[in-house]
Every structure is written in structure tokens, then in C-alpha cells.
Amino acid sequence: MPKPVPEPSRRPLIAVGLGGIAAAGLIGAAAWKLWRRAEPADPGKAAERGLRAGAAILSLAVLLDSGIEHYRGEFKNPAMFVAPTLALATLGMTAVEDEAAPYVFSAALAVGAAGVGFHSYNIGKRAGGFDMLNLFYAAPLGAPAALSLAGLFGLAAEHPGIAAPARIAPVAALALLGTAAEAGLLHFRGAFQNPFMFAPVTLPPLAAAVTAASSVSPEAAQVARPLLLGTALLGIAGPIFHSYGIHRNMGGWHNWSQMILQGPPLPAPPAFLGIALAALGLLPALERRG
């Protein structure tokens, strides 16, 4: 083991981190209170509400994230308009009752999958191919899947018969793992320079495991709730941390035109919130199965 070397300068990272968590906690607690107050008694309705909310947040995250990232990519390919446009449509469908909804959600499902294909094609043709350089900096491999997920959650909310909570729970678990993997890759790129960067690679995978188990075990469903709440909290804390990250980069928010693109991505962490909300909605149904 090499000796630790003295650091030439320090920042109060722990204090900043705890402050961020505390702020997220306040926001999260208030939101959770409202959410609980309006919780439907019927587990099926609760699931529908959770999935719809999850789909809405994921759509919003995809709208902003793909909008910003494709703007960085100068919308060189007209296909780059598809993701943000569809995310906007999906977001709309989660808010209003419309008979076009199933088509929009299905389209989101398909386009998300195609996006993964596009992005891998893009990586593959670059110098270096699927090396770490391109995984770090080229089109993100997993990101388009969030659009598929929004579509899937939207569809599931509309067809509770086909998409029973026990079937959706493993999907949500997988989604959490995927999102944690993406956060892990990008935080690895950031050398985990702040210890709080480990949060999204530890808590969500744990929540994912227990959520998956919930589809067969009502006991697991009870354990899942606090873990999913924690994951949801990360989805709120993330943008707070990331906006601090922009602030502490060169030029801070004054340099927003660069840092909104180069700094830590503001709209990425809410994906955790979206998935966690969907999964939380499934829990009442899963708890009762026993």
C-alpha cells in the first residue's frame, strides 16, 4: 500500500455532504407527508399512482438530461430530437387522461431501446471502441433505457391486469441496478473525490435486491420501504449535490454555460426518485400477498 500523501488543500466535504442530505431530507419529508396523506386505500390504485408518478419523474429527467446532452452533441443527427420530444409527450401522458397514452408509452419503450442501440453503435465506431474513455465520455450506454422505463411504467399503470406488481417489482429492481451502475461509472470517472459519491452505488443496489425479493416475499416488501425511501432521498439530494458541484467548479454558476454540460449532471439523479416512487407504490400490494 502506498503511504497516503498530505493534501495541499482541503474543502469541508463532509459538512457540505451532510448539509446536502439534510436539505434533501427536509424536502423529502415534506413531500412524503403529502404523498402519504393522499395514499389510496386500494393497493391496485396505489400501485397505479406510484407507477404514474415514477413515469412522470423519469420522463422529466429524460427530457432534461437528453435535452442537455443532445444539445451538447449539437443535435448533429436529427434523431437526437426524438428522445426529448418523446419524453415530453410521455410526461404529458402521465399528467392527463388521453387515449393516445398507450401509443406514446409504447413508443417511449421502443425508442429507449433503439437509443441504447444507437449509443452503442456510436461508441463502437469511435477510436478506442468500447474502452473506458468512450464509456466515460461518449454517448452514455444505459441512459436511453430510462425512457423505456418511463414508457413501461406508464403502460403498467394503465394495465394493472397484465402488469401485476409482482411482475413489475423485478423490473424496477433491475432499473435501480442499471441506474446505480451508470452513477457508479460516472462517479468512478469523478474518482469518488467526495465520499458521498458512494451513496448512489451502495444504497440503491441494496434497495434493488430487496425490491426484487418483494415480488415473492411480503416480509421483504416491508424491509424494502425504508431502503426505497432512502433511494428516493438520493434522487432529491443528487441535484443538490450536483449544483454544489457546479458551484465549486471553475467559474461556478457564473460559468453555467460550460458547467451545465461539463459539471455533474443536474437531471440525472432524479431517475432514482422516479424508480423508487414506482416501487414504493407497488409495496402495499406486495405486502398483502402473504
Binding site: R72, E74, M250, G251, G252, H254, N255, S257, Q258, L261, Q262
Partner: peptide, 17 residues
């Protein structure tokens, strides 16, 4: 170029500024 540098570094890539 300071504090703002550049974001788009690749071939045929150009920042709005």
C-alpha cells in the same frame, strides 16, 4: 478562455461561443 473553457472537444465539434 477563463473561467470558461470548452466543452465540445471532438472532431467537427464547436461550442456556441
Amino acid at each position: 478562455a477563463s473561467p470558461r473553457g470548452y466543452v465540445r472537444l471532438g472532431l467537427d465539434e464547436r461550442d456556441p461561443w
